[in-house]
């Protein structure tokens, strides 16, 4: 059984408008490479120059933020659902959380 990957609206242009795609990787790190292979440009949107997930990109394995699991080393099992959700933030001034 493949894993299901939920793609957020800002990334739909990269997947041809598909909001749900399938993957076969067994870890988040592998999944990022798989996404880049199938949808070029995806990794740049999700990761920084060091290959780490961008601060304002949240990746969930089922209901859990992978930052509270094993990060990119988090294992994925058949039938799992991975959701990619860019943070939504801003405000009238410069808050501490918003200083990139």
């Amino acid at each position: 059984m493949p894993i299901n990957i939920r793609i957020p609206p800002p990334l739909l242009p990269l997947t041809g408008g598909k909001s749900e795609i399938e993957g076969t990787s067994s870890s988040i790190a592998g999944l990022l490479e798989e996404l880049e292979s199938n949808y070029p440009g995806m990794k740049e949107r999700l990761c920084d120059d060091q290959g780490e997930l961008r601060r304002f990109v949240n990746v969930y394995l089922n209901e859990e933020d992978i930052r509270f699991l094993d990060g990119k080393d988090t294992k994925i099992n058949d039938g799992d659902e991975v959701s990619i959700i860019p943070a939504i933030a801003g405000g009238s001034g410069e808050g501490l959380r918003c200083q990139v």
Binding site: A87, G91, G95, R97, C98
Partner: peptide, 27 residues
């Protein structure tokens, strides 16, 4: 309505857990 995790007078940061739930509910 989503919780402002920053709880600030100059910024907001939507609670990631609530944001995930909202995305799923809308879907």
């Amino acid at each position: 309505p989503i919780k402002n995790e920053d709880h600030s007078i100059v910024s907001y940061f939507m609670d990631p857990k609530e944001l995930l739930w909202v995305h799923k509910n809308m879907r």
